[in-house]
Design a protein around this nucleic acid. Structure first.
Lengths: 203, 203
DNA sequence: TTTTCGACGGAATTACTGAAACAGTCGAAT
DNA sequence: ATTCGACTGTTTCAGTAATTCCGTCGAAAA
């Protein structure tokens, strides 16, 4: 079980890295610090992870996959669609909490928004939309959700959860080009309709 | 009508300032540029406005008051509550467009988020919530909205419109303290319920 | 053979400094 | 009452020196 020992060390590194990254963000953590946390030399970290970036990515990937896996198995359990959606949303809040400052960093300093990280987060977002679509399709088929296009609705609900503002900041160079604005305007209008449905009295 | 002439000049300054500020943000606009736009010397601007900051504030205040005034008079017209809410949301998108980069600046660089501006925007937010509350109270009284607490709902809808993410970035030093997170968590959960109501099939 | 680490090189970040830009003032001109 | 050129003190910025930190390597330990 030498491999077991190796992955134990690896897990320890990932754990220490997660704690530091989640609190201080990527650039304000040094490899020396992470190594010191688990009583190792910095050079040893490079035996397990080729770069600092890959270590960070692995931390995010692990946490994200945990979340996505949980949701997927919940869907597979075939509980009521209504509860699926509620559980998903609550679990999502939890997940966001775990990666709090890690994710918040997306919307902070430009310097932190490195291309590989953007790709990582966008990939996660895509998978999340996909899960949401599954839930909505099930909800529609079973007749519990009054939606015409689950694919479309999923994107809107996601947008709602991410917040319209996040959208804008995502646009290149923090500037509002016409294209970005039209997309924002469109989804903002659709969100309004959902809000209306949400608070209108049932007939 | 010498005063009329004065306020005409003042209006011209405000107009030039609005155009520049809305596009480039506060710090990337110089008083010289604004003055040049209307063919005046910079020093003359200081005859009408004591500081650059006061000029900026006046621009925001004017645009905001226009918006708030429009909504108020729409409410006074006593149209259907449902249309009130829809109109409000659409007009809000329009308003946001006018102040696009002016407002976007709230969520960008730290350097731009100066205390007097935060207060200005928070003040606007308060007034906006108040209008929204009026609409919801009317909607509830007339029996068109199925909400228990209009005061509370107004805050939630606002949060939805501003986006939960914006909330987080608002917190001091861009750091997620416990208090901020609890507030976020609470409202996120409530937003979930609204989403659910919005897409659930009517019985 | 697998894992750890001290010591080192080079790239990137920070701290520093001098020059340029800018907000705001003042007194004269209109 | 209103405009403006010329000036001042502060802030911003570009360029540079000093430092930090990522990542490597060869030796040592297990």
């Amino acid at each position: 079980m030498t491999e077991q020992l190796s992955s134990e060390k690896q897990a320890a590194i990932l754990d220490a890295a997660r704690k530091r990254f989640a609190y201080y963000g990527f650039s304000k953590v040094t490899m020396d610090e992470i190594a010191a946390d688990i009583g190792m030399g910095k050079a040893s970290l490079y035996y397990y992870f080729p770069t600092k970036e890959s270590l960070f990515q692995e931390v995010v990937r692990q946490e994200s996959n945990q979340f996505l896996g949980d949701i997927q198995s919940m869907i597979d359990d075939r509980i009521k669609p209504c509860d699926m959606l509620r559980q998903y949303a609550l679990r999502r809040i939890e997940h966001f909490k775990n990666l709090a400052n890690l994710r918040a960093l997306q919307f902070q300093q430009n310097s932190e928004v490195r291309l590989p990280f953007v790709e990582l987060f966008n990939d996660f977002k895509k998978q999340e939309v996909n899960l949401l679509q599954q839930i909505l399709v099930i909800g529609k088929k079973s007749g519990e959700f009054a939606i015409s296009d689950p694919q479309h609705s999923a994107v809107i609900v996601m947008q709602m959860l991410y917040g319209p503002r996040a959208w804008i900041l995502h646009s290149r160079e923090n500037k509002l080009d016409e294209e970005t604005f039209l997309a924002f305007e469109q989804s903002a209008k659709e969100i309004v309709e959902i809000i209306l449905n949400g608070i209108k009295k049932r007939k």
